[in-house]
């Protein structure tokens, strides 16, 4: 009995020590274990997706990845071109202030869905070694999916935009009105939803209006599609409007995602001449 008591005391002390370890130590332990488990996790993920990874032709898979990557890249460039055109119109009196920003897309496969049961997250098979960094935006060919919240050498975790912990500065394309998009989680039927808050009461929002990232804060590039307005109402304070947003990305059937790097190209030639 005494031995059991000492074991329990020792266990309690050990657990308290583990919980109070410095963040850098726990991060090192976590990243080491995650990278060590990756060789087991990858085949497990393939088996659990009904053996797709076991039976699909490798060249066909690679071709699909390349095509999806090109689609995502082209859509991103189109969105950026539209955003730049709007910005150019607004800044036509100023010279050389708009910088052409090149964004590189890093394709990554989802190896673990629902990393844990508390946040809407997924794990990608790319990490620091592939040029991914914390807080980089993650997109699908349909639009914004989330951002990188945790990273190791060979893996990274995405926090989906539908998670309530994810907040994005957004803009209604048609009205140029800004607000904050916050995830509302998944319903029990598996339907993802978001809500856009702090929208000015003065704007007339219609169902179907497109919501994109505003670029404010610098975390998410501007012009990434978040979703469309489903319905609108006045918030509980009566000072602002709130809109329910249906995200364009389908979070339950994602296999491939693209991390948007923060590489920047050279400034405009006019700016350099100035």
């Amino acid at each position: 009995m005494r031995r059991s008591f000492y074991i329990l005391i020792l266990a309690g002390i050990l657990i308290v020590v583990i919980i109070n370890l410095p963040g850098s130590t726990t991060a090192r332990v976590s990243t080491f274990l995650r990278d060590a488990m990756l060789p087991l996790a990858r085949p497990m993920a393939h088996v659990l997706t009904l053996g797709q990874g076991l039976f699909l032709d490798e060249s066909q898979t690679a071709n699909n990845v390349q095509l999806l990557s090109e689609i995502a890249q082209l859509r991103l460039e189109l969105r950026q071109a539209q955003a730049l055109e709007q910005e150019n119109r607004a800044l036509r009196q100023m010279l050389g202030l708009s910088a052409h920003i090149d964004r590189r897309l890093i394709a990554a496969e989802i190896i673990v869905r629902d990393v844990n049961a508390w946040w809407q997250t997924a794990r990608l098979n790319k990490g620091l070694a592939d040029g991914i960094a914390l807080d980089m935006a993650v997109i699908t060919p349909e639009g914004l999916a989330g951002r990188i919240i945790r990273i190791s050498r060979n893996t990274s975790d995405v926090l989906f935009l539908v998670d309530p912990a994810c907040r994005i500065s957004a803009r209604l394309t048609r009205l140029d009105a800004c607000g904050i998009v916050r995830g509302q989680g998944m319903s029990w039927r598996g339907q993802a939803s978001c809500r856009m808050d702090f929208i000015s009461k003065a704007v007339q929002i219609m169902p179907g209006d497109e919501v994109i990232t505003s670029g404010l804060g610098g975390m998410y590039p501007p012009g990434l599609v978040i979703g469309h307005v489903e319905n609108v109402r006045l918030d509980h304070s009566g000072l602002y409007q709130s809109a329910d947003i249906v995200p364009t990305s389908n979070f339950r059937s994602l296999d491939l995602m693209f991390v948007v790097s923060r590489d920047e190209g050279p400034q405009d030639a006019k700016a350099e001449a100035e």
């Binding site: 059991s4 074991i7 329990l8 020792l10 266990a11 050990l14 657990i15 583990i18 919980i19 109070n20 370890l21 726990t26 332990v29 976590s30 080491f32 274990l33 995650r34 488990m37 990393v115 844990n116 049961a117 508390w118 946040w119 997250t121 945790r150 975790d157």
Partner: peptide, 26 residues
């Protein structure tokens, strides 16, 4: 034994927290 169970609980807990991105030790 109790000792082995506690060891399994702590080791398994650390592993789960690392893989599932929960705060270490929970």
């Amino acid at each position: 034994s109790l000792a082995l169970m506690v060891l399994a609980a702590i080791a398994g807990g650390v592993l789960c927290d690392s893989l599932e991105a929960l705060p270490m030790g929970y």
